[in-house]
Nucleic acid binder design. Structure first.
Lengths: 214, 214
DNA sequence: GTCTATAGAGTGATAGAC
DNA sequence: GTCTATCACTCTATAGAC
């Protein structure tokens, strides 16, 4: 009967998509088994803690993706590269607004208390990583913290508006606007010339779309 | 048994608070009756269409509040007054970030399809009303539309971050930042002096807090 | 008495746990 | 698949306004 041998890493992205589409309460086990083709037995084999464990591991998986593809590049690398990478990775990850942020949705949901620590860690590290990168580009410390908060919040708000208005153009437009707002602060060069652009739309043509698993 | 006679206008704000706290799926009929003290008989008397009708009327009620207290002042009145009023009403309504936007939360939820038209109308009218007010202050048409989108999205994002980080200071700080970003565009006067401030924090001392029912 | 509003036990369906 | 709890919802009995 064991037609295909599943691994944990195969299961999590599939189940994650059901939670993302239906929310925590809306994602019933029957829906999960129907949409993923994974039986209840398999689910409880991988997640003995049940639905709550599924959601917790999914949040961890999302967080891990952002640590690797967004937060660490901001924290470790050349800050302008890290920021340019962020615009690209975020647009790619959220499918230009077609996918919502599972962690943002959980933050507004009744489930927020159950997963509060994970949700807090995600947003706190994102803002802190961006604040650090901005500071390293030479942005004044007090401004960098505000900008980081504005950008991370702006991305979350853009996802709400994109979904609320059913208009996919809003997300990319918002990313471009947020990136454009940053550009003047990061321009360098004695002649006043822009030596490096952080504009989101400059990066788009070379976008590797779909280069993420969830 | 008919201990107290309820009216529709008493019921909706009570039930709305349960939906706001628990989400559509999370707000079970039992939770609603327990938290509000309203029996199922009464609920189905007021809302023969059941839970879906409850949510629909609640969304309409929220929308109506915003039309009256935010959208119409933006549309009809002196635009700077309308915008100043918006900062104040929004901060007051969302309890400085303690309450979430029910319509924003529904936009991210699985319920979004069921209430898509209501959700779209709310955000579209807000953005359009703000765009119009900005245009009337003299902001260039192309800029006004972008600004309106940025501000409404920024407010929604600030609510996500406030909830996600459990930090109530984020919301007021975000409103102040959004208002501050607007100020330079709206300043007038031959001498370059600011003749009218739209900064949010200038309005706060005279705030009528809690001057809303939900 | 008539009518409306109400409380809450009872319904079948379906949830998550195992 | 089986189990029990809980779901949205129905329905009966009746309290109070007239």
């Amino acid at each position: 009967m064991a037609r295909s041998v599943l691994e944990r890493d195969d299961v999590i992205p599939l189940v994650a998509e059901v939670f993302r589409e239906l929310g925590y309460e809306g994602a019933s086990l029957n829906e999960i088994t129907e949409r993923t083709g994974i039986g209840k037995g398999s689910l409880y084999h991988f997640f003995p803690g049940g639905k709550e464990q599924m959601a917790a591991e999914i949040l961890d998986h999302v967080d891990k993706w952002f640590v690797e593809h967004v937060f660490e590049p901001l924290e470790r690398g050349e800050p302008c590269d890290g920021i340019a990478n962020m615009w690209q990775s975020v647009d790619s990850y959220f499918g230009s607004g077609r996918r919502i942020c599972l962690i943002g949705a959980f933050a507004l949901d009744e489930t927020r208390d159950r997963f509060a620590a994970r949700i807090r860690t995600y947003f706190a590290r994102w803002i802190e990583a961006l604040r650090g990168a901005l500071t390293r580009t030479g942005v004044e410390a007090s401004v960098a913290g505000q900008l980081a908060e504005e950008i991370v919040g702006g991305i979350q708000g853009a996802l709400v508006l994109t979904r609320g208005l059913g208009d996919g153009s809003i997300f990319s437009r918002s990313l471009e606007r947020l990136a454009r707002g940053l550009t003047p602060l990061l321009e360098v060069g004695d002649t006043g010339q822009v030596t490096r652009s952080l504009r989101f739309d400059d990066q788009r043509s070379v976008a590797r779309r779909g280069a993420y698993d969830r």
